[in-house]
Simulated scan of single mutants.
Amino acid sequence: MHGHFGANDDASAIDRVATQKPATLRDGYVVRRYLRLDDERHMLVELSSEPCFPVKQAITIARPDPSRMDYYQRTGIYTATGEGMSVGVSADGFKRDCVTSLEIAETPR
């Protein structure tokens, strides 16, 4: 990801993202924007909803807190923490079954 989207350390995060061109991954999913913040412990990815990366698949991978699933399903924002990491997954407002953004961050232990 970093190789395709590159980095211009002199540019602001907004400028870095504004100039990016989408990348199609080998499995066909399209990354629209990618940002790895300067501390390298925080990554943001925006996915295209076509083809749709299923929310159900993201839930299987990230395993968010099951006691909060009703809340997540209403908001379309899923979070999971553990092993020193936090993962946030957001669903498309119109296609609630498709992931449109992903945030991964290291959490203090």
Score class of each variant (00 low, 15 high):
1 M>I: 03
2 H>Y: 03
4 H>N: 05
4 H>E: 04
5 F>L: 06
5 F>I: 04
5 F>E: 00
5 F>D: 01
5 F>G: 02
6 G>T: 00
7 A>C: 00
8 N>S: 09
10 D>L: 06
10 D>P: 02
10 D>A: 11
10 D>Q: 11
11 A>E: 11
12 S>T: 05
12 S>H: 00
13 A>V: 05
14 I>S: 06
14 I>Q: 07
16 R>L: 08
17 V>F: 04
19 T>N: 08
20 Q>P: 10
20 Q>A: 05
21 K>E: 11
23 A>G: 05
24 T>F: 02
25 L>P: 03
25 L>C: 07
26 R>G: 13
26 R>I: 11
27 D>W: 09
27 D>Y: 06
29 Y>N: 07
33 R>P: 00
34 Y>C: 06
34 Y>V: 05
35 L>A: 05
35 L>H: 06
36 R>N: 05
36 R>M: 07
36 R>A: 04
37 L>T: 14
38 D>F: 09
38 D>E: 12
39 D>W: 07
40 E>Y: 08
42 H>F: 07
43 M>E: 14
44 L>E: 09
44 L>A: 11
45 V>K: 06
46 E>M: 02
47 L>Y: 14
47 L>S: 03
47 L>Q: 07
48 S>F: 04
48 S>G: 09
49 S>K: 10
50 E>C: 04
51 P>M: 08
51 P>Q: 05
52 C>Y: 06
53 F>V: 11
53 F>E: 02
53 F>A: 11
55 V>M: 07
58 A>K: 04
58 A>L: 06
60 T>Q: 15
62 A>V: 14
63 R>Q: 15
64 P>E: 01
64 P>Q: 03
66 P>G: 09
66 P>M: 12
66 P>C: 11
67 S>T: 15
67 S>D: 13
68 R>V: 12
70 D>E: 15
70 D>I: 14
71 Y>H: 11
71 Y>A: 12
72 Y>E: 06
73 Q>M: 04
73 Q>A: 03
73 Q>D: 04
73 Q>E: 06
73 Q>N: 13
74 R>C: 03
76 G>A: 11
77 I>W: 13
77 I>A: 14
77 I>M: 14
78 Y>G: 03
79 T>P: 06
80 A>E: 14
80 A>R: 15
80 A>V: 15
82 G>V: 14
83 E>L: 13
84 G>Q: 12
85 M>L: 15
86 S>R: 15
87 V>F: 04
87 V>M: 10
87 V>W: 03
88 G>S: 08
89 V>S: 09
92 D>F: 02
93 G>W: 00
94 F>M: 08
94 F>C: 00
94 F>Q: 09
95 K>T: 08
96 R>Q: 04
98 C>Y: 01
98 C>F: 00
100 T>C: 01
101 S>A: 07
101 S>I: 00
102 L>K: 01
102 L>N: 03
103 E>S: 10
106 E>Y: 10
109 R>Y: 03
109 R>Q: 10
